[in-house]
Amino acid sequence: MWQQLPDIKGRIFMSRIDQAFNQKKALIGFLTGGDPSIEKTIDYILEMEKAGVDLVEIGIPFSDPVAEGLVIEKANKRALEAGTTTDSLFGMVKKIREKTQIPLVFLTYMNPVFVYGAERFFKNCQESGIDGVIIPDLPFEEKEEVMELSKKYGIDRITLIAPTSQDRIVKLAKPATGFIYLVSSMGVTGVRNEINTDLEAIIKQIKKVSSVPVAVGFGISTPDQVKTIGAVSDGVIVGSAIVRIIEEHGEKADAYLYDYIKSLKDSLKETIALELS
């Protein structure tokens, strides 16, 4: 939800996204919806939750995912070839909601939202049980396209902040809701050996103006990276590495995903233990 106001009895309402970050560092997993099929995406989301994922980002496949590296781009293609549509994903989310309350966020480019009809899109997000949307090609300057609608239907529009944001950080962070997606490094999504951005400095700047949790994504794949980045942020986002497991194992990725997510989660828990000690 986009606002935290006490209810009539003075209780603070906590959205599903808030809960993902409540008293813990969030492990956020990304996969492309419909890769390799809608049914398997449901299984994989439940499996990742079992292994300790706190929030799942579901990519709506797009013909031209300009912010993605090769791994996720290929997943987009596979999902589209399997016949995935925005409507079939809304149907999928409804089914997932029958089984779990894990926070779910859509990652989509602007065109699928716009052409579907922004109002219809956000209404369906609310009705199916989506908590937030990330739209990488909708910068602050163009937010009017969806701002009122996301508020009307109570869907958090996740703010992206990049290593190049610099003087824009305050402007971007102030109105942020849900969580802030801090892009770890320049370029597109994909596994990286090294992340050289001074994330701590950027997070400090954000924290001065916003109490919204900051999760770091792009290029994170190993338990060590999760530990290091988890130490300075409120959450870590892992995408391409998950998608690669699905690419490799197709319909039979359940156990591999479980093991992988578990290893990241354990590593993130160590971070917390270190901070407490």
Partner: peptide, 13 residues
């Protein structure tokens, strides 16, 4: 028209 690009490119634009 407009400027529908990722935040990473906004300062360059």
């Amino acid at each position: 028209g407009g400027q529908f690009i990722p935040e990473t490119l906004m300062n360059a634009i």
